[in-house]
């Protein structure tokens, strides 16, 4: 277990980069990320994003807004080098919406599930279990896809260009 904790600490910056990538991408390409295998996962950052700079907690910003894509505060925080440490994301999976609060360790803090289709209490437990699994699978696929890009210099260079261009664009351009 301590090996995993050590690994988690070593990867911490990648968790922040992944959430930042997810945050920016959620406002690009109609809010979707197309994975290497062709699947598209729709994800939109919404309502709350927490960002942190190199100084740690003393250098943090929390932005709450109905329209995060237009939040200058979040964009400026990113431009000065802060990264996303947690946020609420809406995942559209198999035609249903899941609101997920995700942190930089990729731990899900909470999920608001769509309406359940079953009525029997025991079957509802099974349905909740399976729906959570869909979200975790989506997060895992997105993260592994991000890692593949991150390890490929030319693909990552294009990602950086896209993210930087979005950060530098004005609100009007982003609409």
């Amino acid at each position: 277990m301590s090996d995993l904790l050590d690994l988690l600490r070593r990867l911490e910056f990648l968790g922040e980069e992944f959430l930042t990538y997810l945050y920016v991408h959620s406002f690009l390409d109609d809010g979707g990320i197309t994975l290497g295998d062709g699947r598209k996962i729709e994800v939109v950052a919404e309502r709350m994003v927490a960002l942190q700079g190199a100084q740690g907690k003393s250098d943090s910003t929390v932005v709450r807004s109905e329209e995060l894509s237009e939040s200058e505060e979040a964009r400026i925080a990113l431009k000065i080098g802060k990264k996303v440490t947690s946020g609420q994301f809406l995942f559209a999976i198999q035609g249903e919406d899941y609101k997920v609060v995700l942190d930089k360790d990729l731990c899900i803090r909470s999920i608001a599930l769509p309406a359940l289709e079953t009525f029997d209490p025991f079957e509802q437990e099974v349905e909740v279990f399976e729906k959570i699994g869909l979200v975790e699978d989506a997060i895992e696929s997105l993260f592994l896809d991000f890692l593949e890009k991150r390890m490929d210099q030319s693909r990552w260079s294009k990602e950086m260009d896209d993210i930087t261009a979005w950060l530098r664009s004005g609100v009007e351009e982003r609409r």
């Binding site: 995993l4 904790l5 690994l7 988690l8 990867l11 990648l14 968790g15 992944f18 360790d105 990729l106 731990c107 899900i108 975790e136 895992e140 993260f143 592994l144 890692l147």
Partner: peptide
């Protein structure tokens, strides 16, 4: 379930 278990 977290980033470390996914990577491992």
């Amino acid at each position: 379930f977290n980033m470390a278990t996914i990577v491992r």
